[in-house]
Design a protein around this nucleic acid. Structure first.
Length: 481
RNA sequence: GGCGUGGUAGCCAAGUGGUAAGGCCGAGCUCUGCAAAAGCUCUAUCGCGGGUUCGAUUCCCGCCCACGCCUCCA
């Protein structure tokens, strides 16, 4: 059992994580809005959460992971209108795509993945209790708003008081899309009355037809699934305000107790030095990267090799660096496994099941200490490569503690979530044309008969056609240049 | 304007009050018929100016620059 330290936005400091109860850690992650394919910026956050979960697991905790799917909001409704399809058809499609992408990224599936539309009743109940307690009010059109001034601690998470952001300052840019009839601009909608644009997307409620506000779903579902384990809540840094602030307000007012204790936020991603956003349309998906010839594990490395609280700048260069670095990890993995007769699949499965839960890290202690200290993935990788360097190629084979080294290394790889079995050491192989194969075979034969001139000539021919020969001990491989 | 983050080698990126991990790229070497692949080796005094200290990249103050958030947003 190791201590894991995370930076808590609530206290603005790093704190050792302690479960509220027993050995189990409840972890709620704000999931995607399923109206389009999640881009790599979204996945940067989801991958950080995956590393967090894996690290807690390796540290010895029993992690209960909940990640919601937002399947009703302005964007999903808009998309369904644009496509002339029922809301559920749109959201189900993008949910499938999201799940497929998560798998390709080798992410562990949450134990529960609740949908907003399947928890309307819970949300209505929460609104009702807030109305009853005087934390909310209903407007003429049948919407219900949370009254921010009714919660003294509003702004605790985002330091609103320091920012002097009061209700009167927001009126420079009224948000038309969401402009209902609220008393104060800081108040936020928990129930939005049905409007013409909503089409047939509405539910019955004590306040008439309408739909829940965005912030409410996380409050209601987190309470439902983690009510007794309100430990870690995480999301992208942009969610600190207003989303998480509002979640806290609703939840703490409705149940009178503290909501989550640890709030973890992941920094954003820049692309080629610039901000990435859906509105600017400059984002990549896992598919775009795959088209460029990079396996998902390479993208995962590029997105997770920097510290999660640090903005990272995603570039094509970072993918090449990731590809090379992963090749070295893979070679060490293979060496260390074969040295002690272990197999990748079996070992990873055993680690996931907690079969190597002892705190035996050997030379990898530094790497593990980095990882468990606020998920310092960059530091952990530095520690790992240092050991690889020390051990030398195949060095662990000769080491006294070869087994410990192999297991510790793979525990770290598990925590980082790199599926090294997916690493293609060479560049991705496209279909090799017959012509190239024949030339390569001819060259191999010339080489065998020590006809160097012919062999070199054939190699030049192959190269001029865009292919490269990699000689092996008893044959050759081909790859594109 | 308010809040916040960051400026470390060609690029990326950890870290520490006592003279700076690691990755990529590049160069040299080993191996190889020659190459490629692989392996080994090498490459920084930490934005600028003050201060505290025996000593600061690491603490404090000021400045410059970049970026993010301020109710679409992971």
């Amino acid at each position: 059992m190791s201590e894991v330290i995370l930076h808590n936005t609530l206290s603005r400091s790093s704190e050792p994580i302690a479960p509220s109860k027993g050995n189990r850690i409840g972890m709620y992650c704000c999931g995607p809005t399923v109206y389009a394919q999640a881009h790599i910026g979204n996945f940067r956050t989801f991958l950080s959460q995956d590393v967090m979960r894996r690290t807690l697991q390796i540290a010895g905790y029993n992690v209960f992971h909940v990640r919601n799917l937002t399947d009703v909001d302005d964007k999903t409704i808009k998309r369904s209108r644009e496509e002339g399809k029922p809301l559920s058809e749109v959201t189900e499609h993008w949910t499938e795509v999201f799940h497929r992408d998560c798998q390709r990224f080798n992410m562990l599936a949450p134990q529960v993945e609740p949908k907003a539309t399947e928890h309307i009743q819970e949300q209505i109940e929460m609104i009702a209790s807030l109305l009853k307690k005087g934390n909310a009010y209903q407007t003429e059109d049948g919407s219900v708003y949370f009254k921010v001034t009714s919660f003294d601690e509003y702004g605790r998470l985002s330091r609103l008081k320091e920012r002097e952001l009061t209700t009167t300052e927001a009126d420079e840019s009224p948000n038309d899309a969401d402009e209902y009839d609220r008393e104060s601009l800081a108040d936020f909608a928990m129930w939005k009355s049905r409007k013409p644009d909503d089409g047939d997307v509405y539910w019955e409620s004590p306040w008439g037809e309408g739909r829940p506000g965005w912030h409410l779903e996380c409050s209601a579902m987190a309470m439902k699934y983690l009510g007794n384990h309100l430990d870690i809540h995480s999301g992208g840094e942009d969610l600190i305000f207003p989303h998480h602030e509002n979640e806290i307000a609703q939840s703490e007012c409705s149940c009178g107790t503290r909501f989550f204790r640890y709030w973890i936020h992941c920094a954003h991603l820049l692309v080629e030095g610039g901000k990435m956003s859906k509105s600017l349309n400059n984002f990549y998906t896992i598919d775009d990267i795959a088209e460029k010839g990079f396996a998902p594990v390479v993208l995962r490395y590029a997105l997770t090799s920097g510290a999660y609280r640090q903005t990272i700048n995603f570039t094509m260069d970072s993918l090449h660096a990731a590809q090379s670095a992963l090749g070295r990890l893979r070679r060490f993995s293979e060496d260390s496994l074969s040295a002690v007769g272990l197999k990748w699949g079996a070992l990873m499965k055993a680690i996931q099941k907690g079969k190597h839960a002892d705190d035996s890290w050997g030379p990898f202690q530094k790497a593990w200490d980095a990882l468990r200290t606020d998920l310092n993935t960059a530091g952990a990788l530095g520690g790992i490569f240092s050991v690889i360097k020390e051990q030398g190629s195949g060095g662990s084979r000769n080491s006294q503690n070869a087994t410990e080294i192999a297991i510790a290394f793979h525990k770290l790889i598990f925590a980082l979530g790199y599926d090294l079995s997916e690493v293609v050491v060479e560049k991705p192989k496209t279909e090799t044309p017959e012509e190239i194969k024949e030339l390569a075979q001819a060259r191999w034969e010339a080489k065998q008969s020590k006809d160097w001139a012919a062999a070199d000539d054939l190699r030049d021919q192959i190269q001029s056609k865009g292919w490269k020969i990699l000689d092996r001990q008893d044959g050759f491989d081909l790859e594109t240049l």
